[in-house]
């Protein structure tokens, strides 16, 4: 069974062909970089995505956040449930962890609020 994928790592959107024999990847082609190869490896068995969203700021306003690494695709709504339960107090820096170990990733701030 072979899989044809569109890489989502960058806007080039390479068409990647993954050749699979007996449940093992035997070759990956069509990608132009190492990110694409890693994406294809994950995508075949355990697809992963970085989740980006917003959390409430204490006293009003929204803080953009993201997972610091890709999480399993089927855990995205679990991650969203945690994100939507958070309220963060300023000050907060870019990259600061606002919730740790959520489905194997940390939720980090994408914005500085003084």
């Amino acid at each position: 069974m072979d899989r044809e994928l569109t890489c989502v790592e960058c806007p080039m959107g390479c068409a990647i062909l993954v050749t699979i024999r007996d449940g093992e990847i035997v070759s990956i082609g069509g990608n132009n970089c190492a990110r694409g190869k890693l994406y294809a490896q994950n995508e075949v068995f355990t697809p992963k995505r970085v989740v980006t969203s917003t959390v409430k700021l204490e006293g009003g306003g929204m803080l953009p956040v993201k997972t610091d690494r890709p999480v399993d695709k089927d855990k995205i709504f679990e991650v969203m449930a945690v994100i939507n339960s958070l309220i963060v107090a300023a000050p907060v820096k870019v990259g600061e962890v606002v919730a740790s170990d959520v489905c194997g990733a940390n939720i980090i701030s994408a914005k500085e609020v003084l």
Partner: peptide
């Protein structure tokens, strides 16, 4: 634009819009 995918050409990493602006 809080989604990621910004800056791959320039910074070789995938940033969100606010991070790229920052």
């Amino acid at each position: 634009c809080i989604h990621n995918g910004f800056g791959l050409t320039r910074f070789k990493e995938s940033l969100t819009g606010p991070e790229y602006a920052y």
